[in-house]
Design a binder for these strands. Structure first.
Length: 264
DNA sequence: CGGGGCTCCTGTGCGC
DNA sequence: TGCGCACAGGAGCCCC
């Protein structure tokens, strides 16, 4: 479900609620949710920081370790009362509860001593809102790649946190069609793409993310970026710039939305 | 190695 | 109403 802006919204909200709370107990209502995590290892630990890398929430624990949550498509972390419909619930030292739900069971929960134990984090590309994410860096990674620019943006090793919605929105705002080979972009296009990536993600964070379907923030509320979505999920609707009907195509098994007139 | 297809799983909405 | 199919904010694995 969530991409970088949604995960960042969850992270910020949770940080307000759970910082310096201890995990007192855990209730597992559906073992399939665990994916190998032994939840008992979290009991008694204090949450000293809530971080994010890409689409992963990272709870930094005292005296040691990290609890890493990758919600993938439909995972939800919701803070509040004990929810009996939730598949996993933690009771915290402030008396509140942290519920984890995941309709499709793709989400991954991991406990590690060190973050670099996780392949996903070790190989993850730079944060798009951090300084190390530059046009030059993008250009270096795109060089000679024959894959589509859409697939390139979804590859977490190149840029951390972009998913299917924001990939379409970033490419629309950049005027680049999703089928274009990554390696064929001119420096000028790369600079535009770089700038639009930052703008779209920053604006989406400001508006607390996008709620297409199942995404809810840590309080169970929907995101506000929906009204800024120009192409994603809008097949046949008029392009907001030129009125040409929006096109949907499949790339690597996933939908891409674009304007065939505005994006070249 | 890069690129693309398939897979994990449940739920919903659509056309017939 | 019921059925079957397409599709859903991800990412790992496998094969060419």
């Amino acid at each position: 479900m969530p991409e970088l802006p949604e995960v960042e919204t969850i992270r910020r909200d949770l940080a307000k609620f759970v910082l310096h709370e201890r995990i007192l107990s855990v209730q597992v209502r559906d073992k399939r949710i665990l994916k190998g995590l032994k939840p008992g290892i979290l009991i008694g630990k204090e949450i000293v920081e809530v971080q994010r890398r890409g689409k992963a929430v990272i709870f930094c624990l005292k005296p040691n370790g990290y609890w890493v949550v990758q919600p993938k498509m439909t995972g939800q972390l919701i803070y509040g009362q004990d929810n009996e419909k939730s598949k996993l619930t933690f009771r915290l030292s402030n008396g509140a509860h942290l519920n984890y739900n995941d309709q499709r069971l793709f989400g991954k929960l991991t406990f590690v001593r060190e973050l670099n134990e996780m392949d996903f984090l070790r190989t993850l590309g730079p944060e798009p809102l951090a300084e190390e994410f530059t046009g030059e860096w993008l250009a270096g990674r795109m060089k000679k790649r024959t894959t589509s620019i859409k697939a390139f943006l979804l590859n977490q090793n190149f840029v951390a946190g972009i998913g299917n919605i924001y990939a379409s929105e970033i490419l629309f705002r950049s005027g680049i069609k999703p089928q274009k080979q990554a390696g064929s972009l001119k420096m000028r296009e790369i600079q535009t793409l770089h700038q639009q990536t930052i703008e779209v993600l920053a604006e989406a964070i400001k508006l607390r993310g996008t709620s297409m379907n199942t995404y809810l923030d840590a309080s169970g509320q929907k995101g506000g970026f929906m009204k800024r979505i120009k192409v994603y999920g809008r097949e046949h609707e008029p392009c907001p710039i030129c009125q040409t009907p929006i096109t949907r195509i499949l790339q690597n098994g996933r939908s891409s939305f674009f304007c065939k007139r505005c994006q070249r």
